[in-house]
Computed example of a mutant assay.
Amino acid sequence: MTGGTSEGVVLGVDGMEELVGALIRRGRTVVGPTVRDDAIVLAELTSAAELPYGWGVELEAGRYRLRRRADRMAFAHSAGPQSWKTFLHPERARQWSADRAPDGTVTVTEEPDRPPSYAFLGVRPCDLRAISTQDRVLMGGRYADPVYRGRRTGTFLIVVECVEPGATCFCVSMGTGPGLSGDCDLVLTEVHDEHGHRFWARAGSEAGTEVLAELSGRPADGATVTAAGDAVTGAADRMGRTMPQTDLRNLLRGSMDAERWNDVAARCLTCGNCTMVCPTCYCTTTEDVTDLTGDHAERWRVWDVCYDLDFSYVHGGPVRSSGRSRYRQWLTHKLGTWHDQFGSSGCVGCGRCIVWCPVGIDITEEAHALHAEAGAEEERGGQAGER
């Protein structure tokens, strides 16, 4: 059985249009997947007709291509170049502006973020876990991020369970999918078989129940529920990638001097693409800008990456000056020390970092290589002890 319960309703394709309409009538800005610029991207939707019906994707390390499907499924595609972080933790946010009057007085104005009331349609289970991870990072401590909190609070989440994973997906290894694994307002499972194209919809909150009650669905039947469950189970069996079956935190902790870091450093461009597309990376820095007169200044918060030389800069130079040390920092934090900070892994298995790496570096391949090297070292140590 998939996430939720066997209750709920079955919606036809027209039900998606009703769903988008019901959300818009509530004043929601609906964001979901659509085809644009030869990719499936996240953008504001004014109609369910903008969903990527009949489109799939071909993924590999360093490769992304749209492809036409033989059916009209709307959500049978894998993670695209964006995540919901784009809307909840935006790339740029102005914090304040300052203006100097002719008499020399300076007025500083804080910049309150006034986000729309979002409804996210098509959140994957791995991305739902990513959102909950960023909730802990950006709202879970004493100092909640006001921009994130303002955008996240009240966001209506519609999760779509995965029925067709990509070649770079490994959510099963991270325990984040392909079925529902968290709280949301609505959950959908898309089914396309000899009985037609439809969606099994279940409510996960009071707000979700209210929306679902407005849609012209029929009670969930056994055939649809079974087909939906089989589709999600089948997706779990067809994952394109895996992580090694070991404690990744201990593996990374014991691999700080591994030879493999030299191998990946010879390929890594330290461009930071993997952090840009990652749904959980959260680091930022600040930039101050002025106009040509010097009478107006602004401070902006912008995304930052641990591949940047300035990221670890202290008096005398950067702490991590080599590409080897910067890639190692990213991977050991993502899979290892994130646990110490936030109580979970920083990776949800979406595979975006693999697809959008210009040279095709594969996080699962690197983890397997480190595991193999650690095993070989342990074996050599055992043999030396026997002698």
Score class of each variant (00 low, 15 high):
residue 284 T to L: 07
residue 335 L to F: 15
residue 285 T to C: 11
residue 369 A to Y: 00
residue 75 F to W: 07
residue 146 P to T: 01
residue 366 E to L: 15
residue 234 G to Q: 03
residue 364 T to P: 13
residue 99 D to S: 14
residue 6 S to T: 13
residue 65 R to Y: 09
residue 313 Y to A: 10
residue 358 P to A: 05
residue 93 A to I: 08
residue 91 E to D: 12
residue 357 C to A: 03
residue 296 H to M: 03
residue 152 R to S: 02
residue 50 E to C: 10
residue 354 I to M: 12
residue 356 W to R: 07
residue 115 P to N: 05
residue 204 G to M: 02
residue 151 R to G: 02
residue 363 I to P: 11
residue 253 R to K: 14
residue 347 C to R: 08
residue 192 H to S: 14
residue 65 R to F: 12
residue 153 T to K: 15
residue 354 I to S: 08
residue 243 M to A: 14
residue 189 T to N: 05
residue 90 P to R: 04
residue 315 H to C: 08
residue 370 L to P: 01
residue 282 Y to E: 01
residue 265 A to M: 01
residue 348 V to G: 04
residue 262 N to K: 13
residue 103 D to E: 08
residue 200 W to I: 07
residue 14 D to Y: 09
residue 92 R to M: 10
residue 149 R to M: 07
residue 217 G to C: 11
residue 60 E to R: 15
residue 86 T to G: 00
residue 83 S to G: 15
residue 11 L to T: 06
residue 267 R to F: 06
residue 233 T to G: 12
residue 82 Q to R: 14
residue 243 M to D: 02
residue 174 M to D: 02
residue 163 V to P: 02
residue 40 I to V: 09
residue 194 E to C: 05
residue 336 G to A: 01
residue 302 V to Q: 10
residue 93 A to T: 14
residue 68 R to E: 04
residue 331 L to M: 14
residue 258 A to E: 00
residue 302 V to W: 05
residue 257 D to Y: 12
residue 8 G to D: 01
residue 44 E to W: 10
residue 66 L to P: 08
residue 346 G to I: 02
residue 54 G to T: 10
residue 361 I to P: 00
residue 292 L to N: 00
residue 26 R to K: 12
residue 73 M to N: 07
residue 88 L to G: 08
residue 363 I to F: 14
residue 373 E to M: 02
residue 204 G to K: 04
residue 163 V to Y: 05
residue 269 L to G: 08
residue 249 R to V: 13
residue 290 T to K: 13
